[in-house]
Computed example of a mutant assay.
Amino acid sequence: MRIFRILNNNAVVVIDGPQEKIVMGPGIAFQKQRNDIVPKGKIEKVFVLRDASSEKFQQLLSTLPESHIELAESIISYAEGHLLAPLSDHIHIALTDHLSFALERIQQGIPIKNKLVNEIKMLYKKEYEIGMWAKKEIKKKLGIDIPEDEVAHIALHIHTAKMDAPSMSESLKQASILSEFVDQVEACIGEKIEESSINYQRLITHLRFALNRIQQGEQFEPIDQDMLGLIQDKYKKAYEYSQKILDYLCEEYEISFPSSEIAYIAIHIQRLIK
């Protein structure tokens, strides 16, 4: 393969048959010019990005600081090893662009906010672990200490790049619903829920699976009517809270929960009341 365009010291564009490819590796373009042969021993990654994606990636590689690009690639490589699965090629554009912008903001003293930190940490534990690894790597390589809010942003980018994952908008929507849900429960019971408690984790896990079933159009198992009556009678206040909160979520997000879910979530709320 011969170099068609040099993007930076570690990335070049080559023409391989009918395809245009981006080839990356440390020092792959050092002291090289157009039409020089790409040293095979330095090739670490090859991308075939089509249409606007290719142009966008080339633009990022030729304009962003190389240290930011190298960090993004390190995070992606670590993520694929940690998850034992390949990520979508688009992560190389999305994460690199996001990370560089975030680092610039931090250096300029502009705060980074993410109101869904707790929900992302709970929903995407492995991805959050990757974000924490990235936090240490960024501190080691650049001396920049990214906040937990940014760790959660990185985790969400990694999650949505998984081959079977929903889109970024769907992932954000689910996290937003969970955040709203927790806010509503806390307002009803009149106290802050301890996020590390087992009852909080059970509640969030239950609602998450319910949302996934609704999204995928799966049927819910009907609840036994005697059991439903028992819950309504024994946990009257918790049942009222559950119905009120789920009605609110239905109105806000146009999702519908069956009566069985109102009852089961009432049980979880009751544990928090106690």
Rank of each mutant, 00 (worst) to 15 (best):
T63S: 14
A102M: 12
L60C: 01
A52K: 11
I138F: 07
E66K: 12
S169L: 15
M122G: 02
A161D: 05
E70M: 09
S53G: 01
D89A: 08
K56N: 03
A79M: 11
G143H: 04
D97T: 03
K140G: 04
A134S: 15
I158H: 06
W133F: 15
A94H: 13
M132I: 09
S53N: 11
H157Y: 14
D149R: 09
H153W: 06
K126M: 03
K121S: 07
W133Y: 15
L61P: 02
I130W: 06
K126L: 10
K162D: 00
V151G: 06
L142E: 09
S169H: 11
I158K: 09
K136T: 06
H153F: 15
L116A: 12
Q107F: 03
S100E: 05
I144T: 12
A165K: 00
P147Y: 10
L87I: 01
I76S: 00
H90D: 13
F101Y: 09
K162V: 07
K121Y: 12
K139G: 11
I106R: 12
L99E: 01
E127T: 08
M168R: 14
F101L: 10
I93H: 06
D145E: 15
I91M: 04
L84E: 07
A72C: 11
L142C: 04
E127L: 13
G131T: 05
L103T: 01
K125T: 11
Q108G: 05
K141A: 05
L71K: 07
V117Y: 06
L99A: 05
I93W: 01
H157N: 10
E104W: 06
S100H: 00
Y128P: 05
S100A: 14
A152R: 12
A152T: 04
E150L: 15
L172F: 15
I106S: 11
W133R: 14
E148A: 09
S77K: 13
M132R: 15
I75F: 03
L84C: 07
R105M: 06
I76F: 04
D97R: 04
L83H: 08
M163I: 08
K115A: 13
L103D: 03
D89M: 09
W133A: 04
K136D: 12
A85L: 10
I144G: 03
P147A: 09
K113T: 13
S62A: 11
W133P: 02
P166V: 10
S62I: 02
L61E: 00
P65Q: 08
D164Q: 14
V117C: 03
S171I: 07
M163K: 13
M132K: 15
E70A: 07
K135T: 01
K135C: 04
Q59M: 05
P166E: 10
K140C: 03
Q107R: 15
I112C: 10
Y78F: 15
A155M: 13
L123I: 08
K136P: 02
A134C: 10
L116V: 12
S53H: 10
I158F: 09
K125C: 00
L172I: 10
V151L: 12
L142P: 07
L95M: 05
K125G: 01
I120E: 12
K125L: 05
N114R: 14
T63W: 01
L87G: 02
Y78T: 04
H98G: 01
Y128A: 06
Y78Q: 05
H159D: 01
E148D: 14
Q58E: 10
M168F: 12
I138N: 07
K56S: 07
L142D: 05
H98V: 03
F57E: 01
K136F: 03
A72I: 03
T160I: 11
I154E: 02
L84P: 00
A72E: 00
